[in-house]
Design a protein around this nucleic acid. Sequence first.
DNA 1: TCTGGGGTCCTAGGACCC
DNA 2: TCTGGGGTCCTAGGACCC
Length: 377
Amino acid sequence: MTARRWIAHLDMDAFYASVELLRYPELTGQAVVIGGGRRHQPVLQADGTRRFATLAGYAGRGVITTATYAARDFGVHSGMGLMKAAALAPQAVLLPVDFEQYRRYSRLFKTAVAEVAPQIEDRGIDEIYIDLSDVPGAQDSLGHDATGGVRAVAQEIRNTVRRATGLSCSVGVSPNKLLSKIASELDKPDGLTVITQAELPTRIWPLPVRRINGIGPKAGARLADMGIRTIGNLAAKERAFLIEHFGRSYGRWLHDAAHGIDDRLISTRSDPVSMSRETTFDRDLHAVRDRAELSTIFTELATQVATDLQRKGYAGRTIGIKLRFEDFKTVTRDLTLPAPVVDAAAIRHAAGQCLRRVDLARRIRLLGVRAGGLVKL
DNA sequence: TCTGGGGTCCTAGGACCC
DNA sequence: TCTGGGGTCCTAGGACCC
């Protein structure tokens, strides 16, 4: 009997919002959204209770980073502008983001999982893939159920995460990353879903194509135009048809994905490719009229990138900028230097060279500075 | 009430080299 | 004076993800 490959995808439930609820338990069950700037910190009142800002009357360009499930019931979701969210749920509590705290909890849950299953791939602050194949017990059958062992291991991981953080997570388990990622969303929040290849037609094919990680808004719309809405619809298409319409690489991938085929390994270590800082202004700035303000922000961004590089021990050989204009058109320019740089002045100078190559007739909404071509120091 | 910030990967054309 | 075939690097944009 050869060992089965078992991959888990673990996703923390409404992560930022849930971390905030640990700090403000009186908000439990309420509609809460996280996002925006620092102007809406809770205020401790004389009677010992806290006063929270609400969405009502919010003015600005912030978006929702995370919403509690109670808030989602009002139709708000991450990525939505706070002004729009305020129209849907004015009474919802608004909290500022606190990345330091979220990173702390991120380390906590990842460390806890690693004690049960060390083969972990980082997929950002609130999710990971875990290879369970070699975890003791994962290959065991329980009665007639070959998935019983791995289900017990996954449940143990969920318990461990809750003990370490007080937070719930949702876990999907299947033979590969692609299906596990889909599975972890099937019983959210606080769920555990195990899917085998044999269950593909009944449990995966009825789902919309957009559930596949890698089919975004554009590809989803193109597929819909062709009448392809479910993963089953996609699986029914010939490989050649998909290659014809989506190109060799993406067409093949679409075909494989629809059939639940994904051989990607768990990657336990990876070096960063780039580091960047960007900011959207409170109001659109003009290159000439707001020159001084723009210049100050530009230097700050370069300095932040330099600080990030130094803190993590990298230097960047390609320095780039990003501008978004008032009409939301975005341009990038970059410049590869003879040797990698780390200091703010060198980054600022290279970024300045890039800026000269941009036509600055339109007003600017966003400015960013990026370091790529990273080398470890 | 339009649309944050930090990333990765892919494509495609041109330069340049052998 | 009609011209190959790779390979790599650089740049810009875009899709997608968390």
